[in-house]
């Protein structure tokens, strides 16, 4: 079971994730060429980059400055979400064994804390959706499901590392959760990990190049 989950299924997950994101991105761009040609008249690299940059740095946009709690929780969440799986020793050992490549890896102690920070940030994000009426009204069950999908690899990875319950079973569950998350990305709004850049380029250019105002 472990061999299947950590072998062929990893390939399936990565192919669906990367292939799906390429198809989705190319598809959306070609759709915009058909339906929204006008955008390309004022698409501008300078405004695109400025907009992307402003929305990638903490408190770089007005919305972030007005909602410091959301901003901090959001940035902690995203930084841990990317950094922990990429620089985790356990993951790098497996990549090295499977493909002969590996990245720098951080001490497990740090990964362990970042995992807890991510879970804490997710709890703040969930509470925010429940407590703030203006957020609650636009929240659907999908939002909670996606938060759960993103957190599940962290909760189960933490359990596997600390060897709660049966180490082998938990590790298998962890890998399945990780694969579920990767596969979900192209089919859900988790695809904003790529589409974010397109939207920011679009909106930044639309407002900057065309109307001469900033969107941050």
């Amino acid at each position: 079971m472990y061999e299947f989950v950590s072998g062929p299924l990893v390939w399936v997950a990565f192919i669906v994730f990367i292939g799906g994101m390429i198809i989705k991105t190319v598809g959306l761009i070609s759709l915009s060429k058909k339906k929204d040609k006008v955008v390309y008249n004022h698409l501008n690299l300078d405004w695109s980059m400025r907009s992307i940059f402003r929305w990638l740095v903490p408190f770089g946009s007005r919305g972030m400055r007005e909602n410091p709690v959301l901003t901090i929780a959001g940035f902690v969440f995203h930084i841990c979400l990317l950094a922990v799986p990429l620089f985790l020793l356990g993951h790098n050992i497996l990549w090295d064994e499977a493909w002969g490549i590996s990245l720098w890896s951080m001490p497990d102690r740090i990964a362990d804390w970042m995992t807890l920070f991510l879970i804490a940030a997710a709890i703040v994000l969930i509470i925010r959706r429940i407590v703030l009426p203006e957020v609650k009204i636009v929240t659907t069950s999908t939002d909670y499901i996606l938060l759960a999908i993103a957190c599940a690899p962290f909760i189960t990875g933490y359990m596997a590392y600390h060897q709660w319950m049966d180490a082998k079973t938990i590790t298998i569950i962890h890998i399945l959760c990780g694969e579920l998350m990767l596969i979900s990305i192209p089919f859900t709004k988790l695809s904003h990990m790529i589409l974010f850049f397109l939207s920011r380029a679009h909106i930044g250019s639309e407002f900057g190049e065309r109307r001469g105002t900033v969107t941050w």
């Binding site: 950590s6 050992i93 090295d96 064994e97 596997a160 590392y161 180490a167 082998k168 590790t171």
Partner: peptide, 28 residues
Amino acid sequence: MKAFHTNCKGCHEKENKGPLTCGECHPK
């Protein structure tokens, strides 16, 4: 580390016997 892991896990994988997950070989 790679020499150990390649030797141990390589055979366990091939023989379909013996542990493969971190926690099984490195119990706390």
